[in-house]
Write a protein that binds this DNA or RNA. Structure first.
Lengths: 195, 195
DNA sequence: TTGCAAAGAGAACCAACGTTCTCTACTGTA
DNA sequence: TACAGTAGAGAACGTTGGTTCTCTTTGCAA
């Protein structure tokens, strides 16, 4: 018998895979059982309801997302490059075979109106991303209003890439971000340096 | 007895209201019946399946969206103002009481992976919006790459506004769009006019 | 008035799903 | 070997929802 921690991880990661690929409501708990190899009885001992499982999946995905962004950013040099690295991270993600848009946006559209706990978990992820970007902007010496603008580009790229199936949306977002960053930094820091 | 056209309109507009407010899968055909006042038998004569009804609702919403954008744009003067009017249109929408994000993005997250026809209807709306913006950019003398950048801002604003419940996302998007437009027009048209 | 065709109300049907329950198999212990 | 307790497999339960069917009503023509 596997221990509780292992069982929990297997269930969450199986559910994450299935929910992301097919949507939450389209996946029955029975599918989570066969994908995870953990019995229904055990699943319900770990997560009292499907809603609890969904929230756990969202939190797990938030952690993975934060780590992914942090990794990508840490590989870049200057503060400006670190900001743009966020969009390179998106570009790599959009090219993955199983890319199906932002899981948080998808779940919010599906269930956000009906479950406060789920809506809250989605909000937390978006808020933590906003903070990450705001920290990067601050480190680059950019003005406060730059962060939400870059966040909007990233959000838009995720939905547009999912719907259009065009992974180059990340390129468009990156180019726009580059322009916004240049304008903001040049206006604030060195007055009228580059064109 | 109401005529076919009227019945169709009542069903589509009732379904639209319910789907948008609660999500598609959360709304049963019985709810559509009571909201529209059209019998189930008649509904199924007009729309052979729920999927057909969903597609009809999406097309109807596409028409309304296009008309709304066109109206907003037509009220503006210069080509540059006409581009920004798109974001003013968003700002008004985000402030509506029943705003719950972009219906197309919501439906795509919920069912886009499982139904090609629904995914296609969503794609058509996004593509028609992209064309609208591209036309405005061209009229303003902007470069081709500006349109997808503005579209990403609009898309991002819609999801961010829905999730964060902060209607000022439209303001952020508008400010970013203003910067992008200024940079693009100044780079292309008059070389280095404004800072 | 009688008969008929169409339409509405809502029951019925069937499948899916979240959740719980039962029965069996297995583990460790005396 | 006998036993107690636990866990898994999967059946069972109750609800919901998409779709169809039935029965009654209605409006109209002769």
């Amino acid at each position: 018998m596997i221990d509780e921690q292992t069982a929990r991880e297997r269930v969450v990661s199986a559910a994450d895979r299935l929910f992301y690929a097919r949507g939450v409501q389209a996946v029955g708990m029975d599918a989570v059982r066969s994908e995870s190899g953990v019995s229904l009885k055990r699943i319900y001992a770990l997560f009292p309801s499907k809603e609890d499982l969904i929230v756990a999946v969202l939190r797990h995905r938030t952690d993975r997302w934060n780590a992914g962004v942090t990794d990508a950013v840490d590989g870049a040099g200057t503060p400006r490059e670190r900001l743009l690295a966020v969009f390179d991270f998106l570009a790599g993600w959009f090219r993955e075979d199983d890319f199906r848009g932002c899981a948080f946006i998808n779940v919010f559209g599906e269930l956000g109106g009906g479950s406060d706990r789920i809506a809250e978990a989605v909000r937390e992820q978006k808020e933590s991303f906003r903070r990450q970007v705001a920290d990067l902007v601050r480190a680059a010496g950019g003005p406060g209003h730059l962060a939400p603008q870059l966040v909007l580009l990233a959000e838009g790229a995720q939905t547009a890439a999912a719907i259009s199936r065009d992974p180059d949306m990340a390129g468009h977002a990156r180019a726009a971000a580059d322009t916004l960053i240049r304008c903001a930094l040049d206006d604030a820091g060195e007055p009228a340096a580059a064109a």
